[in-house]
Amino acid sequence: MEDVRIDVVDAEHAGELLTVRRAAFVTEAQLYGDPSIPALTQTLAELLVDLDRAEVVTLGAWVGHRLVGSIRVELEAERANLGRLAVAPDLQGRGIGTQLLMSVLEYLPEQTQEVWVFTGQDSKQNLAMYAKQGYEHQYDQNAGDLTYAYLRRILGDEPEDAETV
């Protein structure tokens, strides 16, 4: 999708970010029959604390003045953990999630050697997007009734058919 601007989300956009995440994660909640997934239960106060953490970078995708997507990156030593990749439901399937995923690399410290992400084991579209960008399945983990798939990308390994932004 053209005219998408990727930038850091700050506290000024926290309410809008919370709305985009909740709208995007309703589909996941329906897929798994679990309305209590963390992306849906996080409060605005909790989100503001998270946005203020030095080891967390939250990127947003804007079309005009509208925040249409986001991704959260938590940095620890030589590893980055991605989470909360969300795209507004009316714009899903247009490459915004892929743009966010690829943009993360620009915000990682030089010492970062690997990037991890997890998603529901049944989230086929998410798994396919991550695989296309060079993420490889490492293991599954059960969390109550849900099973999460954990994927890793070693930096410096370029996916063969990665899309360009």
Rank of each mutant, 00 (worst) to 15 (best):
D3A: 15
V4H: 11
V4E: 11
R5K: 15
D7C: 09
D7R: 15
V8K: 15
H13K: 15
G15F: 08
L17E: 01
L17T: 06
L17I: 06
L18W: 03
R21P: 00
R21K: 10
F25N: 00
F25P: 00
E28P: 06
E28A: 11
E28D: 13
A29I: 08
Q30R: 14
Q30G: 02
L31S: 10
D34L: 11
S36I: 00
I37K: 07
I37N: 07
A39F: 04
Q42L: 02
T43K: 03
L44H: 10
L47I: 05
L48C: 11
V49P: 00
R53D: 13
R53V: 14
A54F: 10
E55S: 15
V56W: 06
V57I: 15
V57S: 13
W62H: 12
W62A: 12
G64H: 09
R66H: 15
V68Y: 08
G69V: 10
S70A: 14
I71F: 07
E76N: 13
E78I: 08
A80C: 09
N81I: 14
G83L: 03
V87A: 02
A88D: 08
A88K: 07
L91W: 10
G93S: 02
Q99W: 09
L100H: 06
M102K: 12
V104D: 03
L105I: 10
L105F: 09
Y107E: 02
E110D: 02
T119A: 12
T119E: 04
Q125K: 15
L127W: 04
M129A: 12
M129T: 13
A131D: 09
K132D: 04
G134E: 04
E136W: 05
D140A: 08
Q141G: 06
N142Y: 01
N142R: 14
A143K: 13
G144K: 08
D145R: 12
D145H: 14
L146S: 13
L146C: 08
Y148E: 10
D157F: 01
E158P: 03
P159Y: 00
E160W: 01
E160I: 00
D161Y: 01
D161S: 03
